[in-house]
Amino acid sequence: MLDATTQRPALPHTPGVGYKAQHYSALISDPGCVGWLEVHAENYMGQGGRPLAQLRHLSERFPISVHGVGLSIGGEGRLDPEHLARLAHLVDWLNPASFSEHLAWSTHDSHFLNDLLPLPYNAATLARVCDHIDELQETIGRKMLLENPSSYLAFEASDMTETEFLRAVSDRTGCGLLLDVNNVFVSATNLGYSPQGYIEAYPLDRVGEIHLGGHDEDQDEHGAPLLIDSHGREVVDPVWALLDHTLALTGPRPLLIEWDTDVPDWPVLEAEAGRAHAALGAAVS
């Protein structure tokens, strides 16, 4: 299916999964209800070999969403021009259905920290994030989707809510949004606000993709719940319920299951995709 305005393959309103090489054969032989795949951009920035050959083959079968995890859009420094060029090269080569990145930073002083780190929400950080997104969108020649983070703490220096911040970024840059429902649940639990209230305040009309994943449970030193976004297990029931609440407001959207650590055998991931498929079906009726 081609998007009418961009003439690119669009992500279907079906379940997708984060692609792992061990699931290659299963996906090629019988993907079941899985209608699209997400890949992490940085894993496909080598010069050749199996990763690129597999991705080329998969892209003939599935619409692909390229998800960057290393651009550091929220970083204080300027974006790494070499990394921007690598992203542009990958997007040109693959022509994916979608490109997305995170509201977070991960690089400082040319050191990459391999985690999605938090930033305060205020006028200064808003200007910085918008400049970086403008530069990225200009470099890759298309609009991106920006994902809401998982938060474990808040900044005294914030004077906007996260949903106000994301709405302002989208207004100024024209970027779409990626709504990670598990991240909403994790952040709302950790910081003590209503996840339903967050969803209702989110600019849902800009949501091009929804993510779901598993999290771990811990406590802070005061005995308060501390949820950690791990992508290492099944999506929990309260997050499925929050998804239903979300889909009732948005209607069906491309819906991704992320499972990045302790990756299970295909039938386990396929069962999660099946549950996502049922949730999408319920949202239509």
């Binding site: 703490l153 808040a154 003590g192 606000y193 030193e221 005061h222 950690i228």
Partner: peptide, 18 residues
Amino acid sequence: QGLRDGRGRQAGKRFDVY
């Protein structure tokens, strides 16, 4: 400094997640 949990207390262990 300047990092808080949801109730305005110092973030403490929450920073250790990162």
